[in-house]
Design a protein around this nucleic acid. Structure first.
Length: 262
DNA sequence: TCATTAACCGTCG
DNA sequence: CGACGGTTAATGA
């Protein structure tokens, strides 16, 4: 066999390895052995999506739970005026639409690939079967659904904040809990986001998002570089977001943070 | 395509 | 009235 055929074969094997690893990192499957993950993958379908392609749509019949195994995904609702309300962003290891997979009702939001992404669709039947065969997955599912409920509270908090400063501040702080990487003094949101993404997550126009973020940069509270946002002063960020009077569990400072939704 | 700025305008406290 | 934020347009990277 020539080198030209052997090399792609090895690439496929490596790719499979990465898919298995990412699938194993899915919170639903925590505690399962490698062979069990392999078995689940064997009975699931792997699909690839180019940037901007829809993975599934709100209202569509649930075929199962989706697990992000590569790339990045945006969850959102399409609104009548053409704007999007973004519910959240996901990265490898995330499970999407577990609720729909469990109750068989339609998908609750639309998912769009932000970049070339790989998704594993775990069929509904298999999700039920997992619950029967591996009690740990029931615990995992409960844990995951609790996290999703809590995140929904954050979304509510963002929407209920009165002004744009507060909404964008709350959005950035939440993103910091989800994707934040502590660089000693500052926190970097390790997830590329356009101004439009921030605006859609905050419920404001892109111009307003820019207006507010430019001001935050002038005041030395944040710094941005090629779609990566760094929070330089979390205290001052909490101020416009009015974190003190917020009843939701965003907990930017929480040490021993529970597993977050990736 | 993404980011930024500015002028303008309606809403609301 | 004046702050705020959406709309529109122009421009730069």
């Amino acid at each position: 066999m020539t080198r030209s055929t052997a090399a792609p074969g090895r690439a496929v094997a490596l790719n499979h390895e990465r898919t298995v690893t990412a699938l194993g990192q899915c919170p639903l499957l925590t505690g399962l052995a490698r062979e069990e993950i392999e078995g689940i993958l064997a009975r699931s379908t792997v699909q690839h999506f180019p940037a901007q392609r829809r993975v599934f749509e709100e209202g569509g019949r649930s075929r199962g739970a989706w697990v992000v195994t590569a790339g990045r995904v945006r969850l959102h609702h399409l609104m009548a005026d053409g704007r999007q309300h973004v519910g959240g962003f996901r990265s490898p290891g995330s499970v999407l639409e577990l609720t729909s997979a469990l109750d068989g009702r339609p998908y609750m939001s639309t998912a769009t690939a932000l970049e070339s992404s790989e998704m594993v669709l775990v069929p509904r039947a298999l999700v039920s079967e997992l619950a029967r065969n591996y009690p740990i997955t029931v615990r995992n599912a409960i844990e995951q659904l609790c996290l999703e409920v809590r995140q929904r509270d954050i979304t509510t908090a963002i929407a209920s904040l009165k002004d744009a400063r507060g909404r964008i501040g709350c959005t950035l702080l939440w993103l910091a809990t989800q994707f934040g990487v502590d660089d000693g003094k500052t926190t970097r949101i390790d997830y590329r986001l356009t101004r439009q993404d921030i605006a859609d997550r905050s419920g404001v126009t892109i111009e307003t998002a820019i207006r507010v973020m430019s001001d935050l940069q002038r005041r030395g509270i944040i710094r941005t570089h090629s779609q990566i946002i760094e929070i330089l002063d979390i205290e001052k960020m909490r101020d416009p977001a009015r974190c003190e009077e917020c009843q939701f569990d965003c907990s930017v400072f929480a040490s021993g943070t529970p597993q977050l939704i990736r």
